[in-house]
Design a protein around this nucleic acid. Structure first.
Lengths: 190, 190
DNA sequence: TAATCTATGACACATTGTGTGTCATAGACG
DNA sequence: CGTCTATGACACACAATGTGTCATAGATTA
């Protein structure tokens, strides 16, 4: 009944395997997440890895699901929240693996419905923080009744465009510029 | 002497193989570009494909190099040139395989220096058209002395952001909006 | 046309990766 | 302590990858 798979052996196996899978992902890319690699890297048996994740998609799915994506703390003040959020995003894109993860996930999603579903979920989750900041600001009348999605595009768009498409390193001061241009455009007094 | 590899057999083999490689890329993604798949799809011998492209990177490199990326014709009139360019881009991203190709290329580039070089070259080539339009407009004083790269980001950024990152379908009328907002911001009389 | 050169493809072989089956055993749980 | 099950060692089949050999079809040159 209470067999909610709390067997410590299962917990141990899952943790060992997923730790290895995440390491492999960062070291050798998404194609390094194979049953063989995970087994060798974690010291688990190959069959054991297959037992927990029968297909490569299952492995990749859970590896990405268990990854921690950057989140900035909020203060409640619009400008500093936008700055903190975009700066965290900038660092994840420029110094961290976020850009690669987005490319890898979307590449797989094109030919794997399971991964496509994961991609959609993670994309939505990743887009939430800026939406929340903006929605709250509208609610407290710090912003006029703007189109949230359009505003998010204006704020996050340039960052993603330069890192994902142009492969440029975006300097920190660009963030301030983007935020202040945005606030200016909506006649927000700083 | 004149052995500039104009042997019709070589020409035939290369064309057959690359046609197959491009088809495979569009049908099954970048991971479908393998020596085996290309040989079977084209009817060529497996060894023959290895002879022309010893590594998988070589195959992928030339497959992407030989792909035709969309180009819009120019009239010389700023607004219509911007509209035509962005609309061609929008169609390639929304209806065509461009979004996938960008993700796939960048994913590979992260773990393959040869592909990274190709990515850089294609990225630069792809970014040229908008630069040319903008540079010419500045030259003819249709635009003030703006930062070309920043202007390009404002025009192309939202399109890429919505398609590559958010996976949304961008409607045609968005293009007009983007262009007119841009021209407005620079006080261009239409 | 005949002679020479070379790109091709059929075949063979080794290596690695993938996926499954069997089964003794170590470890969890009552 | 007895029962249950997750594990891992081993074996097997099969597909993909990469290279080597060699007869031959097709191209070039005389």
């Amino acid at each position: 009944m209470g067999s909610n798979s709390i067997d410590p052996r299962v917990v141990r196996t899952r943790e060992l395997a997923l730790n290895s899978a995440r390491s492999l992902l960062l070291e050798g890319g998404i194609s390094s997440i194979t049953h063989l690699n995970v087994a060798e890297h974690s010291g688990l048996g190959r069959k054991t890895v297959y037992r927990h994740w029968p297909t490569a998609s299952d492995l990749i799915y859970e590896t990405f699901s268990s990854a921690n994506f950057p989140r900035a703390d909020r203060t409640g003040e619009l400008r500093s929240d936008l700055l903190a959020h975009l700066e965290a995003l900038r660092q994840a894109l420029v110094d961290g693996p976020l850009a690669y993860l987005i490319h890898a996930l979307n590449e797989r999603a094109a030919n794997d419905p399971e991964i496509a579903e994961l991609r959609d979920r993670l994309t939505n989750e990743g887009c939430e923080p800026i939406r929340i900041i903006l929605r709250d600001a509208v609610k407290v009348k710090r912003l006029p009744r703007i189109d949230i999605e359009e505003a998010a595009s204006q704020l996050e768009g340039p960052l993603f465009y330069r890192t994902l498409v142009r492969n440029e390193a975006v300097p920190k001061r660009t963030i301030t510029k983007i935020v202040d241009q945005f606030l200016d455009a909506h006649r927000i007094v700083i």
